[in-house]
Design a protein around this nucleic acid. Structure first.
Length: 689
DNA sequence: TCAATCCGTATC
DNA sequence: ATACGGATTGAC
């Protein structure tokens, strides 16, 4: 074979983030194929690496070392995944080695031996569903930028011209299309997948939609057309549901595997190998599965892309949606970005013309949605004779009572405690933003003037842009007690809770009260008779750019579990756009507004932002070394935890790639001259906004 | 004159 | 990072 092997060496230094060439000794010639793990001598030391490719000759002027050893004959890093890792590293100002650590699970030699590569007898099925997901609180976000089909390849809104043509293929539809008929573009989407085309879809699921079944059908259709599929969800509970639906749609076990971080090393590697060896063509999993070795991809999909858990908390902090967008672009395959809600990033894909909207018409939505009623937060508290509670609005109490009388379960969503205190107008509740840079304001103490969390300026003269009021209030969660009181109001009804300590997957379909924190809502067979959304003020005043988007996402996720004959009660000001979006079940409308707002304020995904955190001197040093693209705007510093500080760099979307490359080479310069105090670089993070 | 040490540089 | 080389310094 070709005498030179190009190796991605596992070294943490940014300036060494490129392939190095080695000679292949005769003894290793057969085993040294692209994708295998190797050991090489690097700067005198033995280092791990991946073999990227074999080439005829090296560009390197000096003498080449020999490959030390092929660790395992198993090609665990396909060329297309290597290319994806390279792309993700560039997008997030990180190194390929960092990304590969996320992408390829650690080798488990015993597992590799137990099921030799040449005997595909090993059952590829996943017995036992992926278990408890103990992924921590997701914190960083991601962002994107967008551009209609353009020359420059930007993974945020990939630049290819695509789009499913709604043709009528000769092929007989191999899988049930019934579930997708409610969406005008749904059937065309399935057929495009079956026909080997590359549809780009932003899918807004109908209330009550059995989304795992729909995604399983999309995968089945892709598989029937001879291509593989990859579906990523946010947490273990969603993965369990999808796993069951896949088993049904693909005819039992054996056709797919589920990958999650919660699996042990042996099982995780076993399932990974099943995919790498091509024993299965369909992979489902949580965020790390974005890099799963699925050959001949026809479809990638992400469900509920607004969930924070899709953001990887380890460097370089990639977001599953962005990784899959890049992957779809590189593989030339279809993609579905789905959810009950819609993120600004997904909206951007639609508005750029890169993706088509797969959403039901308004009349169909109305037919399938529960009634949604709003109650002002200070409104009529229940004075009904039967109501023990003095804090529960009458309408909420009535909706719950009616559902229970019909022997249906009632879901009560209450926010979890622990939101960052943020500041809003005391009169009209408009979130307070910095007059200088539009960052969120904070109140350092009860008496101090508001301070911008981005640029650090004191906004002493702040007045609300909506109502001119100068009074501010920090949001306070009054939470949970409301739910307890409600439970007391219905003494004979069983009460269950689902949340941080103890997440319920399902509850029985009979009369009961289920108190849940957002994201932990159990599914009830037949749906809930009523869903109460309480203490919404806490959600709406998060010190977070995505505050309203996140609030709607959480409400819709809960409301989607309500039967269409039931009632959803939201305790919030009906004049707020986010509340209107819930009342109409119209996340696309809110996402469009949200995206327009961000465009105006200069937030991701319309611009690219990088956050640099570290010791003040180190951050300044990195910034000084970075050749920022023209027009880049530097904000800060603002104090961060542990005496560190944080600077933000904002640039237009066309400067995004230049920004990340500049930061990476600046980090390279620093590491080359032994500047050891670390600076954390995050691109489009969610947490600070 | 030689060795111990300090920088600077490259790592296939 | 870590290893090497060439210059620098200090002591015999």
């Amino acid at each position: 074979m070709l005498p030179v092997a190009r190796i991605c060496v596992d070294v943490p230094l940014p300036h060494l983030d490129r392939p190095f060439d080695y000679l292949v000794p005769t003894a290793l010639d057969a085993a040294a194929v692209p994708g295998v793990r190797v050991k090489v001598r690097f700067a005198g030391q033995l280092a791990d690496g991946f073999l990227l490719e074999r080439v005829a000759e090296s560009e390197h002027g000096g003498r080449l070392q020999f490959l030390d050893k092929v660790v395992s004959p198993e090609p665990v890093l396909r060329p297309e995944v290597a290319a994806l890792a390279r792309e993700v590293a560039d997008r997030y100002a990180g190194t390929m080695s960092d990304v590969l650590r996320l992408a390829v699970p650690p080798r488990h030699a015993a597992t590799e031996k137990r099921s030799p590569a040449d005997s595909p007898s090993a059952p590829a099925a996943d017995e036992g569903s992926p278990d408890e997901g103990s992924q921590g609180e997701g914190s960083p976000d991601e962002g994107s930028q967008g551009e209609a089909p353009s020359g420059e390849a930007s993974p945020d809104v990939p630049s290819s011209a695509a789009a499913p043509s709604a043709g009528f293929p000769p092929a007989v539809p191999p899988v049930s299309e019934a579930g997708w008929r409610r969406y005008p573009a749904g059937v065309a989407l399935l057929r495009a997948l079956g026909d080997g085309r590359r549809p780009h879809a932003v899918w807004t699921a109908l209330p009550g939609e059995d989304w795992p079944a729909r995604l399983a059908e999309a995968a089945a259709s892709t598989l029937a057309g001879g291509r593989g599929a990859l579906i990523v969800v946010a947490d273990a509970r969603d993965l369990d549901r999808l796993d069951a639906a896949m088993a049904e749609a693909l005819g039992g076990t054996g056709a797919h595997v589920a990958l999650s971080a919660a699996l042990g090393p042996a099982e995780r590697y076993r399932r990974f190998l099943a995919a790498a060896r091509g024993h299965v063509k369909v992979v489902i999993g949580t965020r790390a599965a974005c890099f799963a070795p699925v050959a001949d991809l026809g479809l990638v999909a992400v469900w509920d892309d607004g969930d924070d858990l899709h953001a990887e908390p380890r460097a370089p902090y990639p977001h599953a949606r962005q990784v899959l967008l890049a992957r779809a672009e590189q593989a030339g395959c279809g993609i579905i970005v789905g959810g009950f809600a819609r993120t600004a990033e997904a909206q951007q894909l639609v508005e750029a013309g890169w993706a088509i909207e797969v959403a039901a018409g308004r009349d169909v939505v109305r037919r399938h949605m529960p009634q949604v009623v709003t109650v002002g937060e200070d409104d009529q508290m229940a004075r009904d004779p039967g109501a023990v509670s003095a804090r529960l609005p009458t309408a909420a109490w009535r909706a719950a009572r009616d559902a229970l009388l019909r022997d249906a379960p009632v879901l009560i969503q209450v926010p979890r405690r622990g939101y960052i205190p943020s500041v809003a107008c005391a009169e009209c509740h408009t979130p307070a933003r910095c007059p200088n840079c539009s960052g969120p304001l904070a109140l350092p103490s009860a008496t101090a003037p508001p301070l911008c969390r981005w640029c650090g300026r004191v906004a002493a003269a702040y007045a609300c842009p909506e109502c001119r009021s100068r009074r501010l209030r920090a949001s306070v969660v009054g939470a949970r007690r409301t739910a307890e009181e409600l439970a007391r109001a219905f003494p004979d009804t069983p009460v269950r809770t689902s949340g941080r300590d103890g997440v319920l997957a399902t509850v029985p379909g009979e009369a009961s009260i289920v108190v849940s924190t957002p994201g932990a809502e159990p599914v009830a067979p037949g749906g809930y008779g009523a869903v109460l959304l309480l203490d919404t003020w806490a959600l709406l005043t998060r010190a977070d750019l995505r505050g309203t988007e996140e609030a709607l996402r959480r409400w819709l996720t809960a409301a989607a579990l309500c039967r269409h004959t039931g009632t959803v009660v939201v305790v919030a000001d009906a004049s707020l756009a986010v509340v209107q979006a819930l009342v109409r079940f119209d996340p696309g409308w809110l996402a469009a507004r949200e995206l327009a707002d961000r465009r105006e304020l200069g937030f991701p995904p319309v611009v690219r932002m990088a956050s640099l955190t570290g010791a003040p001197a180190a951050v300044a040093d990195l910034l000084a070394a970075a050749k920022l693209p023209p027009g880049a705007e530097v904000l800060g510093p603002v104090p961060a935890a542990d005496g560190q500080e944080r600077m933000l760099v904002r640039t237009g979307r066309s400067g995004g790639r230049a920004l990340t490359l500049a930061l990476r080479s600046a980090a390279g310069l620093r590491s080359a001259r032994k500047a050891t105090d670390p600076v954390r670089v995050q691109v489009d993070p969610l947490d600070l906004l």
